[in-house]
């Protein structure tokens, strides 16, 4: 029963997607008239997520016996290093 519900929902989403995105595919050029450009790109966010995902692994490697206590300090250090790296790469940040 659960499977049938999942497939039914995905089928519905497929139909909706097909109807809503077909015009983008069949177009003979860009359909977007305006695109916002910024030095704060999605790539930096993905980079931050990657660093965040690596924090537990790094902590486990560096402090195998004090993982729980050192997780937060390592995360903060990684965050600071990330911000410094992004600034060095030229990303303007305002907080």
């Amino acid at each position: 029963m659960k499977n049938k519900v999942v497939y039914a929902v995905v089928a519905l989403l497929t139909g909706l997607s097909y109807l809503s995105v077909r015009h983008v595919i069949i177009a003979q050029g860009p359909t977007d008239t305006h695109i916002v450009v910024s030095s704060l790109t999605l790539n930096y966010v993905l980079f931050a997520l990657l660093v965040g995902a690596l924090v537990p692994t790094i902590t486990r490697k560096l402090f195998p016996k004090r993982f729980k206590t050192m997780l937060a300090p390592v995360a903060v250090t990684a965050g600071v290093l990330l911000v410094l790296t992004l600034r060095a790469l030229g990303v303007e940040m305002r907080f």
Binding site: V10, L13, S17, S20, I35, V37, L40, T41, N43
Partner: peptide, 29 residues
């Protein structure tokens, strides 16, 4: 390459999701 701004990200992610659904349908399960 890699230059999409954060402000455009939601729209792009939605477009990608719709394209994947349109292309693969139930096979995504």
């Amino acid at each position: 390459v890699g230059q999409l701004s954060l402000f455009e990200a939601p729209k792009r992610l939605l477009l990608t999701s719709r394209l994947l659904l349109m292309s693969f349908g139930l096979a995504l399960v």
